[in-house]
Write a protein that binds this DNA or RNA. Structure first.
Lengths: 127, 127
DNA sequence: TCAAAAAGTAAACTAAAGCTAACTTTTTTG
DNA sequence: CAAAAAAGTTAGCTTTAGTTTACTTTTTGA
């Protein structure tokens, strides 16, 4: 899995986040969290399964594979760094920081992310 | 025209940029600049025509309408602000700044863009 | 001036990602 | 424990945006 779409990255991220507050993540949980239909989720999960990023028995809960977990954490980490930067450095509101971080996290390069992290570190804004 | 896809914004932007160094912008110019096929360009132009953002007679050159020009300039302006910020503030390389600006310009909110502009102004980095 | 090259278009295919309607399976609960 | 509710899936539609192949139109230059 070298390339993932923004959409599939979002699914992994939300599964990761939901997992932190519930024992098992299901299609309906994801659909509600992302405000999309259940069939859309089912199809996305199928695609993630094909890429060995999640495991799910038919009608069962969705579990991230180690690789899926790795990708999800990577995306979520980018999200948190960007959100912090937008809020603390650019003075953007909570809500906008959340929304924009969620979009920028999918398109930003490694180099720019590192620039952001370096900036936060230099200014003593801890992660 | 309240909402434009990232792709269509890119077409408007590239037409605007090409126009600065050539008298008439054609399908082939755009295809080469964006490294995509000519039929892809033709279809995108058709969509922009439907939205009254460009004018083109059959087999003719492509011209931005005043509204198209307004949108193109808005996108390109975002691009320049972001590129400058990435380079001057985050210390990102020329090439990466160009690439990332080109992606972030389509997803960033007004509020965050204003935060970026304010930051540049505060630090005396002139536009 | 007319034939070849270049430019532009049309048609049809593909993939991603959303949707609804209708179905099956599982869970809950009276 | 069986019926209803909830959860999950399937099938088929839509849009966007890329592709290739094959066509038409325009431009150019020997």
């Amino acid at each position: 899995m070298q390339y993932l779409t923004a959409s599939l990255e979002d699914y992994l991220e939300i599964i990761h986040i939901l997992r932190q507050s519930m024992s098992g993540v299901g299609v309906t949980d994801i659909a509600k969290a992302m405000d999309i239909s259940k069939p859309s989720v089912t199809r996305a999960i199928k695609s993630l399964k094909n890429n060995s990023l999640v495991i799910q028995e038919k009608y069962g809960k969705i579990i991230l594979t180690p690789e899926g977990e790795r990708v999800a954490e990577s995306v979520y980490s980018r999200h948190k760094v960007l959100r912090k930067f937008l809020k603390e450095v650019l003075g953007v509101s909570e809500g906008t920081a959340e929304i924009d971080a969620c979009k920028i996290e999918h398109v930003i390069s490694k180099e720019t992310l590192e620039g952001v992290e370096k900036f936060l570190k230099n200014y003593g804004i801890e992660g």
